[in-house]
Design a protein around this nucleic acid. Structure first.
Lengths: 132, 132
DNA sequence: TCAATGTATCGACGTTTGTCAATATGTATG
DNA sequence: CATACATATTGACAAACGTCGATACATTGA
C-alpha cells in the first residue's frame, strides 16, 4: 500500500539508535515474506525458471506438468501461489492458461536484498490476488 | 558444489528449445529454495533487518528477543535456520552469541533474481551448516 | 447440445513449520 | 566449585504445506 524502506543489510541512518529503529514494520514483513515463501519450494523455483526460459517467456500448465514430473492439480496449486505472490501473471488464451513472470516483483525482491538498503516499494507486490 | 547458471527471468540461450532446456537442475533448486524459505517468514525477515540495521551490523539474541516480542527459544530456533541458510553468521563472544548478515548470500539471491540471468554461484551457499 | 480437452477446486493424507514451557549446555564470576 | 546468566535443545502441539485422486468448471469444435 505505502512505500517502505527495507534495510535488510545496512542501516539507513548513521548509527547509535536502539535495536528497534529501522525495523521493518510487521505488515511489510508479512507481505514480503509471502513472496519469499513462494520462492521457498524447489518445484516453484523450477516452474519459474521454466517459464522464464521459454522462447516467448511464457508457458501453459500442460508444458509445466510434463517438465516437473508432477500431477496437473499439483502444478495448478503451485501456479496459484506464484500468482498470489505476484511473481507470475495468468492469462487465459483459448483452452490454455499462459503464465508470464512479473519482472517488477523480482525487482522489488532484489531491492529488498540490496546491501545499500534502497526503497522497496511493497505496493508493487499487492497486484497478486490475495490467497486463501 | 558446482557453479550453476540460474536463469530465473530470461533465457540464456537464443530460443527454440523445448521447455526442459535451461531448466534449473533439481539439486540447485533445492539448495536455493532452502535459502528463500528461510526468508519466507515475517519474523525471520524482521530479525535479519534488525541485525542489519544495528549500528555495528550485529546483534545478540537478547536484543532480538526483546525486539520481535517472541520467546527466547523461538528466536534461537529462527536464528539457527538463518545460519543454516547461510544468511547469517554466528560468533560467540563471552556469554553472548552475536549474529552478522552474510552479504555473499544476499548477492547470490540477487543474482538468482536477475532478469539477465547471470551466474549464480550456488556453492557460496554451502557454508551454512547443514540442518536437521 | 454433446463430446473432448485443458485447467481449477475439493477432500484427504502424511510431513513440515512456528511457537512455547521445560530443561540442558555453555560461559563468566564469586 | 557454585552460582548466575545467555543461549541452545528437547518435546509437544496446532497450523500450514505438498501431493494426489476425484471431480467440477471452461473453452473449443463437431
Amino acid at each position: 500500500m505505502t512505500t517502505h524502506t527495507l534495510p535488510i543489510a545496512a542501516p539507513v541512518l548513521p548509527c547509535c539508535e536502539p535495536v528497534v529503529h529501522g525495523e521493518i514494520d510487521a505488515a511489510s514483513a508479512t507481505v514480503l515474506a509471502q513472496v519469499f515463501r513462494a520462492l521457498g519450494d524447489p518445484t516453484r523455483l523450477r516452474l519459474l525458471s521454466l517459464i522464464a526460459t521459454q522462447p516467448d517467456a511464457q508457458a501453459c500448465v500442460c508444458d509445466l506438468t510434463a517438465a516437473v514430473g508432477l500431477k496437473q492439480p499439483t502444478v495448478s496449486h503451485h501456479m496459484k501461489q506464484l500468482v498470489g505472490a505476484g511473481l507470475v501473471v495468468r492469462e487465459q488464451r483459448g483452452k490454455w492458461a499462459y503464465y508470464r513472470v512479473r519482472e517488477e516483483t523480482l525487482e522489488v525482491l532484489r531491492d529488498a536484498l540490496r546491501p545499500s538498503a534502497g526503497e522497496a516499494d511493497i505496493s508493487a507486490l499487492h497486484e497478486g490476488k490475495s490467497m486463501r
